[in-house]
Amino acid sequence: MKNGFSVIIKRFIVEGIIEKWKLFLFVILLFVSIDFIFVKNVSNIFNESELNVKVGIADMFMNLFLGNPPFSSEENQGINIQMIWFVFHSLIFSFVAYYATNDLKNGSYIFLIKIKSKIMWWLCRVLWCAVFVLIYYFLFFIVSCAFACLFGSISFTPNQNIAGAFWELDLTGLSNYQFWFSVFFLPLIISIAISIVEVTICLVLKPILSLIIVIGYIIVSEFYSEPYLLFNYIMILRDNFMGIKNINNEAAFFIAVSIIAFCSIIGSTIIKKKDMI
């Protein structure tokens, strides 16, 4: 059983990550663009200032996970979707949907029949989602570190001058733990949870429909600030490092973990009755 698990997860990682290196190259280029534009903007604003402001790793994460304020019809304004936030998340779920059940169509039965367990296939798929999302986030971290080394400072503490000038945010009293929990660990676990939800939906619907549902969920999250729209917790302008409507970020973390566990169990039930073609 252990052999089967390691073989299947190895296969998923080779086919779904290593062989997809061109997609990751595209992702890296996207991250380079995001960080380059941000670094340039900071440089332009503070160029003539007496303050020696340098962009740190924390600032680049803040730039990515800023999000936008919720939609308010009373203010007679449209909604400004933060495109880099939207593209960052949409790409994850596009990649996940593509490979979710692709291997079943491409003859992976040969492995299934040897491992003799559909549930093992499913659990490997869940694990693959987590690994994929982790590598995706880690790539952004690496690119940010590179930019920080070359053009800024290797700082894991957000810069108040940048936060104030760009986003009118007051970071007084914000601990590093609170910050990194909100801009790394919480977005990571929520992205993993939603990707596993997406793959679970792929067991019953076509991957494209699953992707549409997830993208729809992201777009609704852009409009409304509600604790059940988990993507709100990945927008600093919404949760302000604390939470949404009395549900704090730590609680959101556990909700995401519960979703992962729930989908793993539901998926195990569905896969037993699914045709593996």
Partner: peptide
């Protein structure tokens, strides 16, 4: 059981790992 206990199968093209 989900699958036969001791089977060897070839149905259409099997999904081998293309980089191996």
């Amino acid at each position: 059981m989900s699958f036969p206990p001791n089977a060897g199968v070839l149905i259409e093209y099997p999904g081998f790992i293309s980089s191996y």
